[in-house]
């Protein structure tokens, strides 16, 4: 997983639970990197998952809900560092398509080893887009958080309904993204 996620995750935990808590988390989990994350580095997925699972345990949070919270918070940060021309504007559905068709392609050019999720768009109306989320990481809820963050940024409240999930034994992970209000 790219370093930027870890750096932002550290900020997110510090912002919500304080420096002392983050320090204690690192103390207990003792990740191989020692928590010295840089945006230019790449770190094992397990490191993120063990940090997340420890935090949920201590704070008595649902892991899925925590992923949604972090994703929703992270969207704006990631968006801020995105190169010009790839900013979210207009329709959120159009931006989601752009993520799959342009942004992921560009990321792949720069980082050939990057593991990126794939979106397959099944249907789209003015208010509802049905899409399949394909990723070996199965971070379905984290993806939901990022989509909600997109809605926040564009002032278009969105809801994500998990119609099917590989995590629940379904053959695929399929979301309905619904425009609210």
């Amino acid at each position: 997983m790219k370093g930027v996620v870890f750096v932002q995750f550290a900020d997110f935990i510090e912002e919500n639970f304080g420096l002392l808590f983050w320090d204690q988390v690192l103390e207990v989990v003792d990740p191989p990197s020692g928590g010295a994350y840089t945006t230019v580095g790449t770190y094992p997925d397990e490191e993120f998952l063990s940090l997340l699972s420890h935090i949920c345990e201590v704070k008595q949070l649902d892991s899925g809900d925590a992923q949604v919270m972090f994703g929703r918070w992270l969207f704006e940060k990631l968006h801020a560092i995105a190169p010009p021309g790839n900013k979210a504007q207009g329709d959120p559905f159009a931006f989601l398509r752009r993520v799959q068709d342009v942004i992921h392609v560009e990321v792949k050019k720069l980082n050939q080893d990057a593991i990126l999720p794939e979106f397959r768009f099944i249907s789209e109306t003015d208010t509802c887009m049905t899409m399949e989320y394909i990723s070996p990481r199965h971070l379905n809820r984290f993806c939901e958080g990022l989509i909600l963050g997109l809605g926040d940024y564009m002032s278009q409240p969105l809801e994500v309904v998990h119609k099917q999930s590989i995590l629940n034994g379904d053959p695929a992970s399929i979301f309905d993204v619904i425009k609210k209000g």
């Binding site: 420096l19 002392l20 320090d23 690192l26 020692g34 928590g35 010295a36 994350y37 840089t38 945006t39 230019v40 580095g41």
Partner: peptide
């Protein structure tokens, strides 16, 4: 904690 954070930051900078 701050001291440790500083150490981590230093380390991160070195890595970077």
């Amino acid at each position: 904690a701050l001291m440790k954070k500083l150490t981590r930051e230093k380390r991160a900078r070195e890595l970077a």
